[in-house]
């Protein structure tokens, strides 16, 4: 079948050519925005450090490891998150939990001796969160992750076990 070419461009009309009407229309639009900003105080931006945006609960921010009522981490060092992680940013060293530190009995026999997350490698996909059978590793709503050195990007167990209310 032969393709038919159609030219849809139209020549400018006389009123479009002198631009002035379009300029007036544009000026009226900016005047409307000016009145909105100046008199009605409507802005699309916010005063950031004082005012913060509300993010969805599904937002995936800085990691944390949930803790139980005894402040013991829920993690049992099963390596599932480390295995599933596509960025290979999780490094776990497993160890045995001493019974003295195991108030919930046989539930948590293993514990992570080291649990490092390299936040610079992490792509915040949330696979670790899905893989975790104990709901231990989670991604919080914290989005201010600016750092001044590379070392600070390595989240260790102390940082991960911080108390996070809700989704943080």
């Amino acid at each position: 079948m032969a393709t038919k070419t159609v030219n849809v461009s139209k020549p400018y009309t006389w009123s479009e050519k002198i631009y002035l009407l379009a300029i007036v229309q544009g000026l009226l639009i900016t005047l409307k925005h000016f009145i909105n900003g100046f008199f009605l105080r409507k802005h699309n931006t916010i005063m950031y450090p004082e005012v913060r945006r509300e993010y969805s609960d599904r937002f995936r921010g800085a990691h944390f490891i949930s803790i139980d009522r005894n402040k013991t981490e829920n993690c049992t060092a099963c390596y599932l998150c480390q295995t599933v992680c596509p960025a290979e940013c999780i490094t776990i060293v497993a160890g045995e939990r001493e019974s003295a530190h195991n108030p919930d009995g046989v539930k948590k026999e293993k514990q992570p001796v080291k649990f490092d997350i390299d936040a610079l490698r992490c792509c915040f996909c949330g696979f670790c969160e899905e893989a975790c059978p104990k709901d231990a590793i989670k991604l919080s709503g914290k989005y201010e992750m600016a750092i001044t050195s590379r070392e600070e990007a390595k989240y260790d167990l102390v940082y991960l076990k911080r108390e996070v209310k809700g989704r943080g």
Partner: peptide
Amino acid sequence: RGSAWMQGRV
């Protein structure tokens, strides 16, 4: 500031 108001900024 006027440019900010016209662009919906503060």
